[in-house]
Design a protein around this nucleic acid. Structure first.
Lengths: 94, 94
DNA sequence: CGAATAATTAGCCAAATGGCTAATTAGCCA
DNA sequence: TGGCTAATTAGCCATTTGGCTAATTATTCG
């Protein structure tokens, strides 16, 4: 989970995830959506892979990235579990 | 939201939020749970306040921090909205 | 007021982060 | 094989981050 939080902390990486939500895309396709150099994006891919949020498969000279849907869903659910409010004590202020 | 992601990216700050989920606590009370110096925690409080996830109120010489429950809930819901899978295209791999 | 306590701000430092260009790897095809 | 394209790795740099100690602020109380 640590890696997931880290992965989500950067706006470019969040945008990559949103793109991949719709369809698989090659590294080059993704690059067209961002004003940063390709090697910079490669680093972002690495971070996202470390969090297991995406995976790449080679297709000829290109690499196709796809979202690991269930991993993302599980991570979101776990965040809910971690932070969502248990109706324990009364509300705080006032 | 940018600030929320940033706030959540650090494990100490996440732990602070979990603590405040149960009850309000003074800065000193919170400090007892962590092996870091008080000024370091003060910085974390600042980051959490910038994300509007917590607020502090003074009570004599101490400052009591409380979780902004609805802000956290809204943030989590928005993350769900942002990332949860719309049943658009078919699954990706294979 | 003066001392004590709680917390923050100021200022410093090492490590991590996100960006870039140049060089390298990997696969395709003539 | 040689050349082309796609992408990553290597290496560099500036900024941010999370940590610390010392100094400052705020409040209470004798």
């Amino acid at each position: 989970m640590r890696d997931v939080y880290r992965a989500l902390s950067d706006p470019t990486r969040r945008a990559i995830l949103r793109l991949l939500r719709k369809r698989d895309l090659s590294a080059g396709d993704i690059a067209e959506h961002f004003p940063v150099a390709k090697p910079t994006l490669s680093k972002h891919f690495t971070v996202l892979k470390e969090a297991d949020l995406i995976q790449g498969r080679r297709n000829g000279t290109t690499i196709i990235y796809s979202l690991n849907v269930s991993v993302l869903e599980d991570a979101l659910c776990q965040m809910m579990d971690t932070f969502k409010i248990s109706p324990k004590s009364k509300s705080s202020k006032e």
